[in-house]
Design a protein around this nucleic acid. Structure first.
Length: 764
RNA sequence: GCCGAGGUGGUGGAAUGGUUUACACGUACGACUCAAAAUCGUAUGGUCGCAAGGCCGUGAGGGUUCGAGUCCCUCCCUCGGCACCA
């Protein structure tokens, strides 16, 4: 038999599986369903990165394993195809994003297919196709009609380089998520989705899903629930009041002054009463000009200005206290005003020190709350999701503006609102759609007068907030997906993807699901029951792979040199799945060597001899692999396959029944090699149609055990004994052992600890 | 600053409170070869010792326990996230 040549065998079996329709998910099949999903990729021009196959291999192992266990598996793949890079590329090269995106998709698909993943390609989706974004637009209308999409003028994050607004989640640290430019604040009229309506549901749902705990905590923190009180402070000799929010109403006796945000309405409404209004307005103007980043730059150095001429009255003790405007108080949170308690709050303390304000120590008292001065209030940090983008390559927002009838949704029958092609992509701060003539050739759906379309497109995260639903019914042109099919396949049983989407995609998709559930369109309220993150694959030195550093590993090269199975097994063997680990090409070589050895061992099959010891090890390995796949501990699963193979190598002949089962448990990891060797055993059908082997519990417990002997808790040796040996017997055996006996000589045994089948410890 | 994860050989890592270092990489030596590659075999935590064997070893220091990488406390370091949210 020839040597193991991955390049010879891999395409052959990929074709075979494809032709047999092995990966097709069957709607309503009479089997339990299992929906196993990857976060679909953005088809970038750079092609597949070695990080992509890490997650994809994990879901492939699980999918193939579940298939063999008799599940009806849905394992789809598609493209998160809208987005800025394609548009930026178009600006640079004049290649239309539609063209470059589809070239990229073809390239990605070819690369993914070369790795032998069991995707059901008949369900492939592309978010940039009108058949798909028609329904993205439908979702916009759905939210709009349910009062969950609204247009409002608000301070928003503006990226000067991308020339578009960004959601809060995309402007963390005051930087654009895409290009890392410093974002600016602009007051603009934009479309928002009312995710804040679901704060409570989004928090509560976390308790019933199997997600990594840190991911849940991050979502929790991002939603940022805090329970407190709102209290009115009256202004001396004025009608007007200033309402503050506090979580520590008990400290109200220590309140030394009030602080309002520079944007607070009291500043203009009390304009006439503020004697230093000029100075105040100067401060406000300066603060407004500052970017968020500048405001945060020196947290310790608080700035502010006193509002002279007015005093507030502390309702707890009727004390008159001064009022300040300072930018350490945020207009966007709570009431935009706080009661400052320098004795208790670090920020108030710093401000008080700088402005020489009294630091009043006061006994804390919760009584105030009951006195009715304050009313209970819950605040959240979560802001509504800003979805407008002043860019071209996205789904147009389906809204029409009529001079007479105002803002009108596009009627559902007129969807999709197609992206026009007669545009200049050069970003100018306005949506490129503004410049299209054909796009604006529209009439008001209400009165029929000439009207204008909305020029902005939607954030691409809108497209990815519902894609997992579309896979259940990808060709439907009547609705985004049939309820029956969504309810059959969903929720997703196992979802794998990077941790970087914790407060973006993963939060948005949960929001969509909850909105649909509330409207009765689906029967589940969490989209992803079980979620796991793959750890990054770093470059050899432990730093991130990047084009500029020239340390990027191209998966095509690895497949070419070592084969897809080697790449797959290596990426699973590197270490714990969720951990970031450096790439090591030596490790790939080692895995290839392992597969070579399997290939050679498989040549020694003889059907008669069944070595009992090998059979026992096989059954232990079946148990280990089964448990490890369930727990996604792929690295230890592979090591146990190596151990078994090492043992098989020592035998001249391997029983056919042992080899067959070995190939079955190998098959999810190295599907091509397993299928090749399986077919070498004169099989007609694919190995993946076999039933996943079960282990014999009687074979996994050895009759002989190794009893560890300890003296004072220190291991001093071991003896072989029969399973279930009693303490008396074990002590007897131990004392006969020369090596141990010398430790016990002339010593008084104070105590014996005996752990059955494990150890015996003499305390002397 | 706050939240989270982690610190085990030369390297990636393994380890229900029970022989620390499975499995793999690397290295050394040996076999095969004219030679190299590939392959196979042996060794491989540190230290003392000719050896038998001893002692020390999971970031540091304490504690609980017959026994701690694992549990508890204090601290140090690395990585990820958030960051004036009252």
């Amino acid at each position: 038999m020839a040597d193991y040549e991955p390049s010879q065998i891999e395409p052959k079996w990929q074709k075979f599986w494809q032709e047999k329709g092995l990966n097709k998910a069957e709607d309503f099949a009479n089997k339990p369903k299992f929906y196993c999903l990857d976060m679909f990729p953005y088809p970038s021009g750079a092609g597949l990165h070695v990080g992509h196959p890490k997650g994809y291999t994990a879901t492939d192992i699980i999918s193939r394993y579940k298939m063999m266990q008799g599940f009806n598996v849905l394992h789809p793949m598609g493209w998160d195809a809208f987005g800025l890079p394609a548009e930026n590329y178009a600006v640079k090269t004049k290649v239309h994003p539609d063209k470059s995106t589809h070239q990229n998709i073809e390239h990605f698909k070819e690369q993914i297919k070369s790795l032998g993943f069991s995707y059901d390609w008949s369900r492939e989706i592309d978010t940039s196709s009108p058949e798909y974004y028609k329904w993205t637009q439908w979702f916009f209308l759905f939210l709009y009609k349910n009062g969950l999409a609204y247009k409002a003028k608000a301070p928003v994050n503006w990226c000067p380089k991308c020339q578009t607004v960004l959601a809060n989640e995309q402007a963390q640290n005051g930087q654009c998520e895409r290009c890392e430019s410093e974002v600016e604040q602009k007051n603009l009229e934009q479309w928002f989705f009312k995710i804040t309506d679901f704060c409570e549901e989004l928090l509560l749902g976390l308790d019933k899903i199997d997600w990594p705990e840190p991911t849940k905590i991050m979502q929790k923190n991002w939603i940022g629930k805090s329970e407190g009180y709102e209290i009115d402070f009256t202004i001396k000799n004025q009608e007007q009041k200033i309402e503050v929010f506090t979580t520590r109403i008990d400290t109200i006796f220590g309140c030394a002054y009030l602080v309002v945000a520079p944007e607070h309405s009291a500043i203009s409404s009390l304009k006439l009463q503020i004697s230093n209004i000029k100075e105040v307005e100067e401060y406000v103007a300066k603060a407004k000009k500052k970017s968020d980043r500048d405001r945060q730059a020196d947290i310790k150095d608080k700035t502010g200005v006193k509002l002279e001429g007015i005093m507030a009255i502390n309702p707890a003790n009727n004390q008159e206290i001064p009022i300040f405007a300072a930018d350490y108080v945020l207009a966007s949170y709570g009431t935009g005003a706080i009661m400052a308690v320098p004795a208790q709050d670090e920020r108030d303390y710093e401000f008080a020190k700088k402005f020489n304000l009294p630091i009043v120590e006061a006994a804390n008292s919760w009584e105030m709350a009951e006195k009715g001065i304050a009313k209970k209030k819950i605040n959240y940090k979560l802001r509504d999701w800003l979805v407008s983008r002043q860019r071209y390559w996205g789904a147009p927002i389906p809204i029409i503006y009529c001079a007479k009838c105002g803002q009108q949704p596009v009627p559902e029958k007129d969807l999709p609102v197609l992206l026009p092609t007669d545009v200049d992509f050069m970003p100018t701060g306005e949506s490129p759609l503004t410049k299209s003539k054909e796009f604006h050739n529209v009439r008001c759906p209400v009165c029929g007068a000439k009207a204008m379309r909305e020029n902005d497109t939607m954030d691409t995260f809108v497209c990815s907030s519902w894609y997992f639903l579309r896979y259940t019914d990808p060709k439907n042109n009547q609705e985004f997906a049939a309820k029956k099919l969504m309810d059959y396949w969903c929720p997703v049983d196992c979802y794998v993807g990077g941790a970087e989407h914790t407060v973006l995609h993963l939060l948005y998709a949960r929001f969509f699901t909850k909105a649909l559930y509330k409207a009765g369109l689906i029967s589940f309220d969490e989209p992803f029951l079980k979620l796991r993150h793959q750890g990054l694959i770093l470059a050899a030195g432990g730093e991130k792979m990047s084009k500029s550093k020239g340390n990027v590993i191209n998966p095509d090269e690895v497949v070419k040199q070592y084969g897809a199975d080697s790449l797959r097994v290596y990426e699973m063997f590197m270490g714990p799945f969720d951990q970031a680990i450096s790439w090591d090409t030596q490790g790939v070589k080692g895995v290839k060597k392992f597969l070579d050895r399997i290939f050679r061992v498989a040549q020694n099959i003889k059907s008669e001899v069944v070595q009992e010891s090998l059979k026992k090890l096989l059954h232990k390995t079946i148990k280990k692999i089964t448990d490890d796949i369930e727990a996604m501990k792929f690295n230890t699963a592979i090591s146990s396959l190596m151990i078994l193979n090492n043992e098989m190598e020592k035998e001249k002949e391997i029983a056919r029944e042992i080899m067959e089962k070995f190939l079955m448990i190998l098959s999810p990891f190295a599907p091509h090699l397993a299928e090749e060797l399986w077919q070498g055993l004169d099989k007609k059908e694919s190995i993946f149609l076999e039933k996943w082997p079960e282990y014999d519990i009687n074979l996994i417990n050895d009759e002989k055990i190794n009893l560890i002997i300890q003296i004072n808790g220190k291991a001093r040796g071991s003896i072989e004994a029969v399973r279930g040996i009693g303490e008396q017997e074990a002590v007897g055996l131990t004392k006969k052992d020369q090596k141990i006996a010398k430790w016990l000589e002339n010593k008084e045994i104070k105590k014996i600890i005996f752990v059955q089948n494990k150890l015996i410890n003499f305390v002397i």
